[in-house]
Design a protein around this nucleic acid. Structure first.
Length: 465
RNA sequence: GUCCCCAUCGUCUAGAGGCCUAGGACAUUACCCUUUCAAGGUAACGACACGGGUUCGAAUCCCGUUGGGGACGCCA
């Protein structure tokens, strides 16, 4: 049996990272077993579905590299098929028309709640009802009233539901649109889905879907309900928590492999390992290792994970992404070795955005010096040192980090001071502040002309300060 | 309210009855390394929700309590 999984988002909001984690596990499981991963867009709610949301789903998955093998399949394109199945269910008595109005149903629910009962359709149209003028009936699924349904869930184990707890759900609205639970059942069947991997907020839908599958004569898939992902404060994920949409993570400068690594470690683990490449995850992933409890997002750990992945990438593989972030900040990146900058900066930034911000001084001379740093490093005492550095660098033959390092070290030795006494004034002169990559790399990247120019300017400040 | 799910450091997790004096990671704090900042290294802090069973032995199995989450739509 070939494994077939599906990721089935509804395009009503932005694709958030809880959805991404679901997509990841579906993708991973399919990849791991040489199966097929399908993207299905559940857009039967025509009021709330938007093209923009569909685009975000597709762009987001594309960015992350979670490419579907089939799809996107749109449920709204399958209406003929749904109506066909509804016709069959009607004919076989597994479904019936219901003429209740919304007002009638609202009243019924209100009464039930007043009696502290679980609100549910009471089946008043179950055994036929006179056709009512001016009302287009809905179609309801005739759920069994006795016995129970057992969901065989690979992460939770068997879960039993009493049929008496379930009511007759609407499968076709009065406007002719089929509803979610029904479409899911038909689609999972038609698409020959073998493993339904989704959030555990769907556990309660599963017995209904199982009953419909049975009524249609379909073999049910295996279910795996994943624990929810909560916001950092342990409550349900919402816009309140800030970055929720995948694309926001891209814009904040996270690497796709890092986001996937972090999300993968939520609800899944492999011993003590924290850092995984996508390839490793694919090789190691198993539904047996998925745990049952919800997990809260930890922004610090996400940032750390991102840094770990940035350090794993060669600078050249970071350069184009760094360029995007710099351009977003309005920095002109022409003519500068971005790969070298990325290599120098990747272990001192948590995100590409932070890297870009830390790297601005590579592209423009400091407009002002950090007051504290200048007061300490651009002084009458350091001026002679800066002068010597200027002379040494001016006459240096081969421009390169190794040569620069050797030259500065020799100078420090000659002056009888530690390298720090030489490097720090130079750093402030070049970067405008007390922080930068190692001075040799910084000098090398900046280039002789820029370095000499900035030293001259700093010298002016040092002499007068 | 009814039904369903869940429960190990602040957070993510390891843990399949003895290997647990409960391990790792993020965060925090100290120290080391060091030309700054980082990165890296070492250490410290820090948890089995509670109560009953079962067992020679329970974080692990069972029951209850409490707490959290989800579902109960002509939403998905």
């Amino acid at each position: 049996m070939t494994v077939r999984t599906r990721f089935a988002p509804s395009p009503t909001g932005m694709l958030h990272i809880g959805g991404v984690r679901t997509a990841l596990f579906c993708w991973l499981y399919a990849r791991r077993h040489g199966g097929t991963f399908i993207l299905r867009i559940e857009d039967t709610d025509r009021e709330r579905s938007t093209d923009e949301a569909i685009q975000v789903i597709i762009d987001g998955m594309d960015w992350l590299g979670l490419k579907p093998d089939e799809g996107p399949v749109f449920q709204t394109k399958r209406y003929d098929r749904y109506r066909e199945v509804i016709g069959q269910l009607l004919a076989s008595g597994h479904a019936y028309h219901c003429w209740c109005t919304k007002e009638e149903l609202d009243q019924m629910r209100a009464e039930q709640q007043a009696r502290k009962e679980k609100p549910r359709y009471d089946g008043r149209c179950r055994h036929g009802r006179a056709l009512r003028e001016g009302i287009t009936p809905v179609v309801r699924f005739r759920n069994p009233t006795e016995g129970s349904v057992v969901v065989r869930d690979v992460v939770h184990g068997p879960i039993e539901f009493q049929n008496a707890e379930l009511d007759d759900l609407i499968i076709l609205r009065s406007d002719g649109n089929p509803t979610y639970n029904f479409c899911v059942a038909v689609d999972d069947w038609d698409m020959r889905i073998t493993h339904v991997i989704r959030g555990d907020d769907h556990i309660n839908n599963t017995p209904r879907q199982l009953n419909m599958l049975q009524a249609m004569g379909a073999e049910p898939p295996v279910y795996a309900h994943l624990p929810m992902i909560l916001g950092p404060d342990g409550t349900k994920l919402s816009k309140r928590h800030g970055a929720v949409s995948v694309l926001e993570y891209r814009n904040a400068g996270f690497l796709p492999e890092a986001l996937l690594n972090y999300l993968g470690r939520l609800g899944w683990s492999h011993g003590d390992q924290e850092i995984f490449s996508l390839e490793e995850m694919t090789r190691l992933f198993d539904l047996d290792d998925v745990n049952k409890s919800a997990s809260a997002l930890n922004p610090d750990k996400l940032a750390w994970t991102n840094q770990q992945h940035m350090m794993k990438r060669p600078g050249a593989a970071l350069a184009p992404l760094l360029a995007e972030r710099l351009q977003a900040l309005g920095v002109d990146t022409a003519g500068v070795d971005l790969a070298a900058i990325a290599d120098a900066q990747k272990e001192r930034a948590k995100t590409l955005l932070e890297m870009a911000e830390n790297s601005r001084f590579f592209f423009a001379d400091p407009q002002a010096y950090d007051p504290k740093a200048a007061a300490k490093n651009l002084t009458a005492e350091t001026a002679p040192v800066l002068e010597r550095v200027r002379a040494v660098l001016d006459s240096l033959e081969a421009w390169g980090a190794a040569g620069i390092h050797a030259a500065l070290e020799a100078l420090a030795a000659e002056l009888g001071v530690g390298l720090g006494k030489v490097a720090q004034p130079v750093r402030v002169a070049l970067a405008g502040g007390p922080v930068s990559p190692p001075i040799d790399a910084t000098v090398a990247i900046l280039g002789r002309e820029t370095v000499l120019r900035r030293l001259d300017r700093a010298l002016g400040v040092a002499r007068s300060g």
